[in-house]
């Protein structure tokens, strides 16, 4: 029973971070109608920013959120404005070509990171990286718990923004019907730029929060792009509430897979769940959420 609860806690904490990764991808999917295959690479860039600030300036990893998130917001804005939006203006270019562009961006970001930091594994060791506290015999990793707290805060802020502000409503309007949104006076090009910024900013937070308990090398983006893709599909392409469920499901699946099947099968269990959802509930968790 204790092992089960321990696995559950670990899965939920990790799932929170996955939800944060999936939320950004889902927003981008909803508004742009494309899968951003550079999503994990955005996260990798944020992790290097955190690493550099920690290593050279001695900043606490969590403090670096106030730099990594705005930096990635800006990177997302510039990429959308100067690389992706121009592709949409050419009618003969299919939306698929924007996806190819994101693949290219992913490669360029990875190689720039390799150029600057080399391929070596790096990590950020803090006093709380491997410490834990206990509640009723169950251990909670301090770093993961703090990360979970930040994740909840960011998620609630995001939903408040999407539901209560005119800009947030405009983002939802464009994702539901972009031509009707144009008629309402919404500049969909501008909304796309802002959405890419927000998506990149959210995944930056996930990267920064993950770094104290993880390691870092230039190719780390790829696996996380894949995870983000799985979460977005699980959540039902474009559903924000679905992305949270998708993130938690993947976190729990990996956690239980690692405990009950074996550490090596962690990723496999996630992928099996992914296939099962595709087979038996196509459309993902969206049908249960309606948001």
């Amino acid at each position: 029973m204790e092992v089960f609860l321990q696995t559950l806690v670990a899965g939920v904490l990790k799932g929170g971070l996955y939800a944060l990764i999936g939320l950004g991808m889902t927003l981008i999917m909803g508004v742009m109608g494309i899968i951003n295959l550079a999503h994990g690479q955005f996260m990798m860039v944020a992790m290097y920013i955190t690493y550099a600030l920690f290593h050279f300036f001695g900043l606490d990893p969590y403090t670096t959120l106030i730099i990594s998130m705005p930096s990635l917001f800006l990177l997302g804005v510039l990429i959308q404005k100067y690389l992706l939006n121009p592709l949409m203006k050419v009618e003969s270019i299919l939306p698929e070509n924007q996806v190819l562009m994101t693949v290219g961006i992913a490669m360029v970001l990875t190689e720039i990171a390799r150029f600057i930091f080399s391929s070596n594994y790096l990590s950020v060791r803090t006093s709380y990286s491997s410490s834990a506290f206990y509640v009723g015999g169950i251990s909670f990793s301090v770093a993961l718990t703090v990360a979970f707290g930040f994740t909840c805060f960011l998620t609630i802020s995001l939903f408040w923004f999407l539901i209560k502000t005119d800009l947030g409503r405009s983002i939802r309007a464009v994702s539901q019907d972009s031509e009707a949104a144009e008629l309402m006076g919404i500049d969909s090009g501008r909304i796309k730029v802002i959405t890419m910024g927000i998506g990149a900013g959210l995944v930056a937070a996930a990267g920064t929060l993950l770094l104290p308990i993880y390691y870092l090398f230039p190719d780390i983006g790829g696996p996380f792009t894949r995870k983000a893709f799985i979460i977005t599909i699980l959540g039902g392409l474009g559903s924000t509430v679905g992305a949270i469920f998708g993130g938690l499901t993947l976190g729990l699946a990996e956690s239980f897979g690692a405990t009950y099947i074996g550490m090596d099968f962690e990723d496999l269990v996630g992928l099996v769940i992914f296939l099962l959802v595709l087979l038996f509930i196509p459309g993902g968790f969206r049908r249960f959420t309606k948001v």
Binding site: R169, E182, L183, M184, G185, I186, V291
Partner: peptide
Amino acid sequence: SHEVINYGLAHVPEGRRLFPDM
């Protein structure tokens, strides 16, 4: 097109085109 509404012209499109999840 998104600036047209600023001049006082509204367009109720064919098929209603509401935002269905809102």
